[in-house]
Design a protein around this nucleic acid. Structure first.
Lengths: 341, 341
DNA sequence: TTGTAGGCGTTATCAG
DNA sequence: CTGATAACGCCTACAA
């Protein structure tokens, strides 16, 4: 009744354990007939190699860790988009599974000892931040790691992320094509790598076009949730739109687009008639606003799959590219469609 | 440089491996001084028990599996709310971690053999459906399982879910209190346990109040995503609202509220003035509609934590309650607030 | 072609 | 109180 082992199969087949092992996993060595017989018996018994024993023997657990950005503790209101997490984790689990690996979810920990308790061959670090305490812990582990999102400190050699520059430039091109001449960028005042990058990309685009950049840093709320972020953006947008309003706003953070739309409505500005609006990363809430808000799909599934395959390559001893860009796609919606001829 | 083992610690401390093991994990048996010395040396060397070896020896992996409802394959457009998944998985990982366990994400598989490849002590089955192929595979595993969401087939003995009846009754009470006299319920025409339960709860509530129930089953779209569900609900709502419109609609599925709101707008019905609207489960999109839509927070984090603790109790040999209800909370928003004095 | 034996790191048992 | 030893299940080098 208990799970059959190699021994059980060997006993039934009348051969030694070694032969069974070779028959099931080895290349040649075993007589084809014997192999077939053993295979059949193994299948009949429902034999399947114990992953733990195999792991001890091989030093591999066939498991990848995914270090979430979640803080350790009861309250976890510091995640901007659980939707993004859901898409990333399910896609990563799926990709790992297809490569015969498991995916272990690891909460954010700062202690290498806590990580050692968990068994995995490599680690995907989700959105490492500047001065992220996870990085030190991971360095002490001595296992391959891949960052999902960029790591400015360079502590993680391999990074998978969407091409922020292309995303920002694409949105600005789109807004300009719709008639925008003065585009204000709204970015969170946080030490997030993509936020910095977005601002730089915005400035560069403005320089190329010979227009004056106007990047507003939005002070972050105490708790980082979609709601509070929208609220912060609303306040900042009210100030921007009150005097000398631009003809377009580029929201560079989840939740910002919704906040800007609320501010515009309060001031009697109509989107897209009086103000064009777009956000860098797409989210479900942008579909249901009135008007729906233009944004870029960053394909979290694609990011997750790339991170998984990159990590697997590292484990195989290969040398994948150290920076991998994942695809993105602009979703033009009513908020940025100028209706004039 | 390599990870130190018990042997290394034993060598340095000048004792046997067994003594080191007992010093670090055992109760008494070891001389306090020796124990302290071994502890110090282990810490200095950065020793930490190998989870795989410990697993082989103990038969426990200190890992919980979470079987997602995701279909195996590239396309995964059959998930209604990734936000819900994100909240559930991160919370479960956190809860497991706090109990010194890992959380392994398992894609939906129908083959017990595939599951055997992964190492976990128990399994949380997310939203088991009627005729769910996962259930057969899990049954063949012979390990404890807990359902997150109800399992109508009773194949999983322990279930954790919000109290659907209370949710529906609470919403109906709320709508009635706001002046609704004829409430139509919109439910998906799918074999989902909570959908059936919701309808039954609705009928029971109507019977108690002595009013005629009017439950409309919405045919499901080909692909189950938030967008397509909204679209289906919109179509169904148009039919309902066109002739003899009720004064309230209760949307009993993610995405439905948004669809109903769109239908009402098309027909020139104003929410909440001409039509009250509420949905059973909350989602971010409901905050940003105009007006925002009333819904019930089902606290996925709470469900996840309860599922984890229940599974851990089963593993400890305890006998937890077979049906556990998790808390819920009505979030009254503008869509259901009658403005009349 | 097949059997034997050793060892991965940990823990339990038994002897000292 | 401590040391030696066996066993968990698997893989593989070596011997037959």
């Amino acid at each position: 009744m208990a799970k059959p082992t190699l021994r059980d199969v060997a006993t039934v087949a009348g051969v030694s354990v070694g032969t069974v092992s070779y028959a099931l996993n080895g290349k040649g060595r075993v007589d084809p007939d014997t192999r077939e017989r053993i295979r059949r018996i193994a299948a009949e018994l429902g034999y399947s190699a114990d992953p733990v024993a195999r792991g001890l023997r091989s030093g591999r657990t066939a498991t990848l860790g995914m270090a979430l950005g979640t803080v350790v503790g009861q309250r976890r209101d510091d995640i901007l988009s659980f939707e993004w997490y859901g898409r990333v984790t399910t896609a990563a689990a799926q990709a790992a599974f297809e490569a015969e690996h498991g995916l272990l979810l690891v909460p954010a920990v700062h202690d290498a000892g806590q990580l050692r308790r968990m068994a995995f061959d490599g680690l995907i670090v989700v959105e490492p931040g500047e001065g992220d305490p996870r990085l030190a812990a991971i360095a002490g582990l001595g296992i391959p790691a891949v960052a999902l999102g960029r790591d400015s400190t360079g502590r993680i050699a391999h990074q998978v992320a969407p091409d922020t520059d292309a995303v920002v430039a694409g949105l600005l091109d789109h807004l300009a094509a719709q008639g925008a001449t003065r585009i204000v960028a709204l970015a969170p005042d946080m030490p997030w790598e993509w936020a910095e990058r977005s601002i730089i990309a915005y400035r560069r685009w403005c320089a190329t076009r010979g227009v004056q950049p106007d990047a507003v840093r939005v002070p972050p709320p105490a708790q980082l949730s979609a709601c509070t972020m929208s609220e912060s953006a609303r306040t900042a947008a009210l100030a921007v739109l009150r005097d000398d309003p631009p003809d377009a706003i580029l929201a560079l953070c989840l939740g910002f687009g919704v906040g800007v739309l609320a501010a515009a409505r309060e001031l009697g500005l109509r989107v897209p008639h009086d103000l064009l609006l777009a956000q860098d990363s797409d989210e479900p809430a942008l579909h249901t606003t009135d008007p729906p808000i233009t944004a870029v799909d960053l394909f979290p599934e694609s990011q997750a799959r790339t991170a998984v395959t990159t990590l697997l390559e590292l484990l195989r001893g290969a040398h994948p590219a150290s920076e991998l860009n994942t695809p993105t796609e602009l979703r033009a919606r009513a908020s940025s469609q100028q209706r004039h001829g």
